[in-house]
């Protein structure tokens, strides 16, 4: 009873958020420009300085990492959107209605999937322009994009929780960077796993952003199968391992965020 209610009400709220994208398209422009900038920056500025084992071109290596990094960064948008919602009068309307208490969160995380779909399309096009190629089948490619979107959806629930904890929209960017920066930079997104040593390397190998990146590279055919990247189980089975993280994150952060929504609105 509670779940379908959360989904139908959540969809109504998501539609409201999507109308805002239509009315204020300027927001979209900035969300979509930053991934382009990242692709160009890494491809041309760092591209020459980083060696990838197995004779893989850095630009091919890079795009999977940029995809992963961008969808994780994109989750900040969810946190900011929610933090903004919480300060608006409309929340009082929502809270005085007999609607599902999860609806505002379900709606926000759902409408943000649209941002991620758009930014993946933009990035893929930019990637193709700078020399990235998909070398596996269409189904594998679609599986890669689907995995990115589902992972992004899970992370957006983490950021939803952060967005409810912080007192204002201004704090959200800094608060989320504390989590997102280490996750994306201490990973194989921009440099090969082999370039890390010791404890850091173990972190990289088991970091879900690394395995997501690895899964994308394999599904898009951007790795050299003759040269295995790492023998850690997580890196050998990146799709399964990443899916495990997705389930875990959702199991923890969906209830946590709904609880926080209730708490922060009934002070």
């Amino acid at each position: 009873m509670a779940l379908p209610h959360a989904l139908t009400d959540g969809w109504v709220v998501a539609q409201r958020n999507l109308i805002k994208i239509k009315r204020v398209p300027e927001v979209l422009v900035f969300v979509l420009i930053s991934p382009i900038m990242f692709v160009l920056l890494f491809a041309y500025v760092f591209g020459g300085a980083i060696d990838v084992p197995g004779n893989v071109d850095y630009k091919e290596f890079l795009v999977g990492g940029i995809f992963a990094q961008t969808v994780v960064f994109g989750a900040t948008f969810t946190g900011a959107g929610l933090a903004e919602d919480m300060q608006k009068g409309i929340i009082d309307r929502f809270r005085s209605l007999p609607m599902s208490p999860a609806a505002v969160l379900v709606g926000r995380t759902t409408s943000d999937v649209v941002y991620n779909v758009l930014s993946l399309i933009i990035m893929a096009l930019t990637g193709l322009i700078v020399g990235w190629r998909v070398r596996e089948g269409v189904l594998d490619m679609l599986a890669g994009f689907a995995l990115l979107l589902v992972f992004a959806y899970a992370i957006s629930w983490v950021m939803a929780w952060v967005g409810l904890l912080v007192p204002s929209v201004e704090v959200i960017n800094n608060a989320s960077f504390i989590v997102i920066m280490p996750l994306t930079f201490v990973s194989n997104a921009f440099v090969p796993t082999e370039s890390f040593g010791g404890v850091l390397r173990t972190f990289v190998e088991w970091n879900p952003v690394s395995t997501l990146t690895q899964a994308c590279r394999e599904l898009f055919g951007n790795t050299n199968p003759a040269v295995p990247t790492s023998d850690a189980w997580s890196m050998q089975n990146p799709v399964v391992y990443t899916l495990g993280w997705i389930v875990l994150i959702l199991l923890v952060f969906v209830p946590l965020s709904v609880r926080q929504y209730r708490l922060s609105t009934s002070k």
């Binding site: 009400d9 009068g89 609607m99």
Partner: peptide, 26 residues
């Protein structure tokens, strides 16, 4: 039915969209 001092409407939505949304949430 609550109507507040700070109008609880979504400024980006039209009047029609605001009221339709509330109806759907009921």
């Amino acid at each position: 039915g609550l109507s507040g001092q700070y109008a609880a409407v979504d400024e980006h939505l039209t009047g029609f969209e605001n009221l339709t949304m509330v109806g759907r949430l009921y």
